[in-house]
């Protein structure tokens, strides 16, 4: 006979819960699986009807994503030397040759720089501000906090035109710095509020103990508060990254070349040489990965929760 526990759910309710979760996961993951598989289909397979679930995998989509290709005359084509690389070979199958790399790599790197840059800046400033609001006597604290929150109440795109004009004047249009500042400005209110909640929960006694143990306030912040705020920092960082990574409207408006991110770029793939669904799907798949990897890396912190155990209440 197994022991009966008051806090652990019973085996039956656990399996029912598991079933529900798995069912829900399958439903939500199906479109993602479809994108993933389309990325590995050949052009004809991707638009065949009825849709193919089983197909011969091909890297055509990925090769098309990263290259630009040209169609050349038949005798010219026949005169070409044999393909040197595996991707040359794939391209030749559709009667084209590689003209050069596509812009996707650059755009993707722009997304990475702007997304992670603005996330870092939001968290860095947000943590310091949240700590100050949580611990110090700040004049007009409540009003300031409300002001910070209020910047979030208007849909950011409502100020698109002024920002567009301002950025043009300041020379920030289509620059990495400009986009990082913009996304940071949008995210910082969320960051301050979320992080303040987490830091409020960390008892002051820890910092006081560190002050007495011979540390300065800033050192106490770094050695005692930061490790305990890790959970809050991780989850806030994920929120910030998701916003900056997915943002489309400002990216369309303010970037065109130099600093264009992946979201406005991916739709333009369709136009290149007919409707290249596998390439679009490949781009979408790669675009999904960073946020997913980031979340998985920080999962430990998200799940761990905050430890209050060592303070007697």
């Amino acid at each position: 006979m197994s022991a009966y526990s008051v806090t652990e759910p019973s085996r039956l309710s656990k399996s029912v819960a598991a079933l529900l979760v798995v069912g829900y996961a399958v439903i939500t993951l199906l479109p993602l699986l479809w994108i993933l598989s389309t990325g590995f289909k050949s052009g004809p397979d991707s638009i065949s009807y009825p849709p193919k679930v089983l197909f011969e995998p091909s890297l055509e989509g990925y090769v098309n994503l990263f290259t630009t290709r040209t169609r050349i005359g038949a005798e010219q084509f026949a005169a070409l030397p044999p393909p040197e690389t595996w991707y040359d070979k794939i391209v030749r199958q559709s009667g084209t040759v590689i003209a050069g790399p596509s812009r996707f790599g650059e755009r993707f790197m722009n997304s990475v720089i702007i997304g992670f840059g603005s996330t870092f800046l939001s968290i860095f400033l947000g943590t310091l501000a949240a700590y100050a609001f949580s611990r110090f006597r700040v004049p007009l604290k409540d009003d300031l906090l409300f002001f910070i929150l209020s910047t979030r109440m208007m849909p950011p795109i409502a100020v698109a035109i002024p920002i567009y004009l301002m950025y043009r004047e300041l020379g920030l249009s289509d620059t990495h710095l400009g986009m990082i500042l913009l996304y940071t400005a949008v995210n910082i209110s969320l960051a301050v509020w979320l992080l303040k909640g987490f830091i409020d929960e960390i008892p002051r006694e820890y910092e006081e103990a560190a002050l007495i143990d011979g540390y300065t306030r800033f050192q106490a912040f770094r050695k005692v508060v930061l490790p305990q705020a890790a959970t809050g920092i991780a989850s806030t960082a994920i929120f910030c990254l998701i916003f900056a990574w997915n943002e489309y409207a400002f990216a369309v408006l303010l970037t065109s070349g130099n600093a264009q991110t992946a979201p406005p770029f991916i739709p333009t793939i369709i136009g290149v040489g007919g409707q290249d669904w596998p390439a679009v799907a490949a781009g979408a798949t790669l675009f999904l990965l960073p946020v997913m990897i980031f979340t998985i890396l920080l999962r430990k912190h998200l799940l761990r929760g905050i430890t209050f155990g060592a303070v007697r209440k």
């Binding site: 103990a209 560190a210 011979g214 155990g309 060592a310 007697r312």
Partner: peptide, 20 residues
Amino acid sequence: DTPAQRDVAMVFQQYSLYPH
């Protein structure tokens, strides 16, 4: 003076060990 400069040690009533 800051607490560090005063060179005192304190055992708190709510003994606050660093949980991490």
